[in-house]
Design a protein around this nucleic acid. Structure first.
Length: 265
DNA sequence: ATGACAGTCTGGGACTGA
């Protein structure tokens, strides 16, 4: 099974590129983030025409996550019970969706498509929200894995954390900014203790995001913030990983590129 | 060449992103 995650930064703007990527990349399952649309605006037909089922959640022009699969898609659910809300209005944002994929090829995998809050500034309420969101998700999946230790679970998406210094183009530039702070890195790494291993780093070294501004891509001044964390039973089946840097090229690119893992059947 | 922000909307600028 080829499983990919991609912050596509608007599914409506990017739909042609997404479908082309699915077909070219032989992608069985694609987790998407930053749909930037509501359900009644989502281009379901484009996916079904090429053989993919889709589950998605989107409330407005912000956030939005989805999972597309051509190897079965069932048991979908939105968010998690302890998911923090945002703002005075206590909004449940569209940042997490899960589903079981792979049943048609006898390789059931529970996939989570995640769009971790940005944090904005270290002293911003959004930063505390981000840390709480990660902590609560970690606790949720830790409990789930404790209940089903053999489960194949993939936590994939835009984590909005650069866990190592080498994951940003300049630590000097990020001094005092979000994504590289120790509490964020601790929150990211805490999933390890919960039983989830990041499975792409041992196969590939590359950024996954380059800002649209300041010629960041041509200068290769990027960040590595998109990751795949796997439960033990899944991690042992991961045989490779790729970061498709070509998807950042040309007109109409997202600022993120897809991260792909190969899972043995 | 991979090129100097981009997407969305209770829109005409503001907000969000990282």
């Amino acid at each position: 099974m080829r499983l990919a995650t991609w912050n596509i930064n608007s599914v409506r703007t990017r739909i042609d590129r997404i479908i082309a990527f699915l077909e070219r990349g032989g992608i069985d399952v694609l987790a998407m983030q930053e749909l930037k649309c509501k359900e009644n605006q989502f281009p379901f037909e484009a996916f079904t025409e090429v053989g993919y089922e889709v589950t998605m959640v989107g409330h407005n022009q912000w956030n939005g996550v989805a999972i597309a699969s051509r190897v079965g898609l069932s048991d979908s659910s939105v968010g998690f019970s302890e998911m923090p809300t945002w703002g005075d209005d206590k909004v449940s944002e569209a940042r997490a969706i899960r589903a079981v994929v792979g049943e048609s090829i006898d390789l059931p995998v529970e996939v989570w498509s995640l769009y971790v809050p940005n944090g904005r500034e270290l002293d911003h309420p959004h930063y505390a929200y981000k840390l709480q969101w990660l902590a609560n998700l970690k606790e949720h999946v830790r409990a789930e894995l404790e209940e089903r230790p053999k489960a194949k679970i993939a936590l994939v998406g835009d984590w909005n954390v650069a866990p190592e210094d080498e994951d940003v183009w300049s630590m000097e530039f990020f001094e005092g900014k979000t994504h590289v702070s120790q509490p964020e890195r601790d929150a990211f790494n805490a999933f390890e203790d919960a039983g989830f291993t990041e499975v792409t780093r041992k196969f590939v070294t590359q950024y996954t995001y380059w800002d649209y501004q300041q010629l960041r891509f041509p200068k290769n001044q990027g960040m590595r913030i998109d990751f795949v964390k796997a439960s033990p039973a899944l991690a042992e089946r991961v045989t490779g990983a790729e970061i498709d840097r070509n998807e950042r090229k040309g007109k109409g690119a997202s600022d993120h590129v897809p991260v792909i893992v190969e899972i043995a059947e």
